[in-house]
Design a protein around this nucleic acid. Structure first.
Lengths: 139, 139
DNA sequence: TACTAAATTAGAATAATTCTAAAAAACGTT
DNA sequence: AACGTTTTTTAGAATTATTCTAATTTAGTA
């Protein structure tokens, strides 16, 4: 999120607020997280603005849309290659900054143009584990 | 899907139809794909039955719920560890049967109980590539 | 064959996301 | 500083995937 150097983008206060909220944010917020936060400063803020802005940032390559949480999309302003660890209970997501080198077999590389990969580690975070509960298929 | 040995499950014709459709299926169908197909044989079939059955199978460990396609959940009757390659355009998903061994750093293993991992490779399949179109952030 | 718990059904409800059309605002140009 | 054009914001409606509900039906057992 190169601070405020948003060449080619109209810099509105709402967008700035979203950018500031995202800048350095490692909580992998959902659209609603962002909406709730920014709405504090701009009470008329609408969901459409959040989604529009996120889409614009994604198209510019400044934001990753994560498909890890089965309930909602999560967003990551850190666009450098990295992986994620998610808690199956509370859906907390943390970064995994390790450069695993992973190659695809020739067969798949022939039938796809592969752009990259992303590893999703899954488990239960300490916080949820201490809260207890059964550990069957229901997680 | 151990054929018809559904101990502890009431074996209804609708469930059998779903099981048969899933058996050996590597297309990673969505709930709607399953619904559409099974409805041919059982025109009164409802979505609730599909979702209920999928949930029962998942809880029994006979089905994986994939969170890869940003638009809908996809299901995989192959529960042995493997990975996936998805086309960002048409959302086709293919299996990747390679055993990468991937370890998490100590730091993360301390704050989570990690059950496993899953690699998502992403790109554009040949079919979509030949159809052309721009290759910007919009995919 | 009868019982009972579990499954199916149609449709309503919910939740995330997208769309719409009108009003407002950014930014380059006067 | 005001103007004009194009983009953005807004409130709310619309859409889509998924879940829930309550009544009816059915599988599996006694």
């Amino acid at each position: 999120m190169q601070k405020y150097r948003e060449i080619g983008l109209k810099l509105t206060p709402q967008r700035l607020a979203i950018l500031e909220y995202l800048d350095g944010n490692t909580s992998h917020p959902s659209a609603e997280d962002i909406y709730r936060e920014v709405k504090k400063r701009f009470p008329t803020m609408s969901f459409a603005t959040v989604y529009n802005t996120l889409e614009v940032l994604r198209k510019r390559g400044n934001l990753l849309e994560l498909t890890i949480d089965p309930e909602r999309k999560r967003y990551d302003p850190n666009t450098s290659p990295h992986h994620h660890l998610i808690c199956l209970r509370c859906k907390k997501i943390v970064d995994v900054h390790v450069d695993y080198r992973i190659d695809l077999p020739q067969k798949e590389r022939e039938s796809f143009e592969v752009f990259g990969n992303h590893i999703e580690f899954y488990g239960i975070c300490n916080n949820c584990k201490q809260k207890g509960g059964v550990m069957n298929g229901s997680v």
